[in-house]
């Protein structure tokens, strides 16, 4: 059975550019367009990996969702799902966040524009670790 990847992103063009390489690599891809839809989809799809956009309705929607999913009181099966965060600000903006389990519960970052090769490598890495 192929592994399931849930994309939570409100930009359909970004979703498409994530979906095509993932599908061609044999993953089963599901998508959700908002934070709320994402929470529902996590329940129904039970994905093996979540790809999450950092900025959706608000600048921090992605973070809030990640925090909710990986909170200490979240169900064990939700907490185990690795999260790959998509951001367009990571590369050149001086940022106040970096991957750090203390306050940012995500497992990896990928920068926009998305390079399919990097994406597939990251996804494979996270899935093999979990």
């Amino acid at each position: 059975m192929s592994q399931k990847v849930l994309i939570i992103d409100d930009d359909p063009d970004v979703v498409l550019s994530l979906r095509m390489p993932l599908e061609s690599a044999g993953y089963e891809v599901h998508e959700a367009g908002s934070q709320a839809e994402g929470l529902v989809a996590v329940e129904s799809v039970k994905p093996d990996l979540i790809i999450l956009d950092v900025m959706m309705d608000t600048h921090t929607a992605g973070f809030q969702l990640a925090q909710k999913l990986h909170a200490p009181d979240a169900p064990e099966e939700t907490r185990r799902i690795p999260i790959l965060m998509v951001t367009a600000v990571h590369q050149t903006t001086p940022l106040r966040f970096e991957p750090d389990s203390d306050y940012l519960p995500v497992d990896g970052f990928i920068d926009k524009p998305i390079d399919p090769k990097t994406l597939l490598a990251e996804v494979a890495k996270l899935l093999s670790e979990s």
């Binding site: 970004v14 550019s17 095509m20 524009p113 998305i114």
Partner: peptide
């Protein structure tokens, strides 16, 4: 970023 991502794909 979205355009570039699509172009790369």
């Amino acid at each position: 970023a979205a355009s570039l991502s699509l172009m790369l794909t």
